[in-house]
Design a protein around this nucleic acid. Sequence first.
DNA 1: GAGATATCGTTAGCACAGCTAACGATCTCG
DNA 2: CGAGATCGTTAGCTGTGCTAACGATATCTC
Lengths: 160, 160
Amino acid sequence: MTRRAPGKIAKKADPKALADALHSAAIHLLRTLRKEDDASGLSAPRLSALSVVVFGGPITLGRLARTEQVRPPTMTRIVTGLERAGLVKRVGVADDRRLTRIEATAKGQRVLAAGRARRVALLTESVRLLGDRELAELGRGVQLFNDVLASMTARLPPGK
Amino acid sequence: MTRRAPGKIAKKADPKALADALHSAAIHLLRTLRKEDDASGLSAPRLSALSVVVFGGPITLGRLARTEQVRPPTMTRIVTGLERAGLVKRVGVADDRRLTRIEATAKGQRVLAAGRARRVALLTESVRLLGDRELAELGRGVQLFNDVLASMTARLPPGK
DNA sequence: GAGATATCGTTAGCACAGCTAACGATCTCG
DNA sequence: CGAGATCGTTAGCTGTGCTAACGATATCTC
C-alpha cells in the first residue's frame, strides 16, 4: 500500500498514510459506537440534530439543516419527529416571522446526555487501560487531530 | 469545553475527557468528509459495504450484513444496488449452495479507490501543514487510537 | 436413508431519511 | 405599493432500516 524505505521499519510519518489511518480509525470507532445509540430510541439523524441544538443552543431550522448538511425539507421532518417526542420545541421569532427557532427541552437535554454518556463510556473504559505515558501521548494526538480539523474546515467552505 | 488548571496548559489526561474529545473529533471529521462522497454517486451504506468487499475480499452476504451491522434483507438490497451498478457480483458457492459470495468487480475497485482518494486528499492536505515533530506525535496518537479500538472490539462482542 | 431442524438469502410490507419541485408567508428594497 | 428574495412546509420520488414469513439447502437424529 505505502512504500517503505528498504530495511527501515520506523515510518517517516508520511502525511498521506497518516491521513488514511486516521480516517479509517474514525470510521471504525463510530461504527462500533453506533450500536449504543439503539438504547436511546432515537435514529442517528435525530440524535445528531438534537446534539447540535443542545450543545449549540437555539438555532433556526435552516441553519440547523446546513449544519447537518441536509436540505430544509429533511430537517423539517427530523425536527417534527423530535418535537413529537418532546425533545425540542419550535419557537416563533418576533423580529422575522419567517424564521422558526428550534430549542431543546429539558427532556431533550436529559436524553442526549444519557445517550452520549453511553457512547463515551465504552470508549472511556478502553482509554483507561492506557498508562500515564500513553494517555499523555494520546492526548497530544487528539489535540493535533483537532488542529488538523480546524485547518480543514477553515480551508474548505469559502461560502454557501 | 475542558477545564484547565489556571496558568497550566497541559492537562492531567483525564480518560473520560479524552474519550469525549476523541469521540467528538471523529464525528466532526467524518461529517466534514461526508460531503466528498456525493461525487462518487454512491450512498453512504453502499460505499461502506463496497469498501468492506474491496478491502476484505469476497465475503458472504450474511457476514457482510453483520460486519455492517445491518439485517440480511437490508444487505440484500444494498448488494442488489451495487450489482446493478456493476460494482460487485454475486457468485454461488459450490460447497454450500445456500450461500452467496459477494465479490468486487474491477470497476468496483476503481470507483472505491477514487472515492477514498477524494476523501483522504482533503485530510491529507491539512495533515501536510504539520511539522515533522507534530507529524510524529500525531502518528503516535493514531497508533494509540488503534490500540484503544482493538481493546474495545475485543471486549465488546462476546458472541452473537 | 427419511424426516425434523437449522441456516441462508429473498420477498413483502412498514417507517424514516434523503432529495427536488412547488407553494404560501414574510421580509426587503425600489 | 409592487417586485424580488428568503424561510419553512407540503407533495411525491428513491433508498435504507426493520420484522415476519418463505423457499432452498445442509445437517442432525433416529
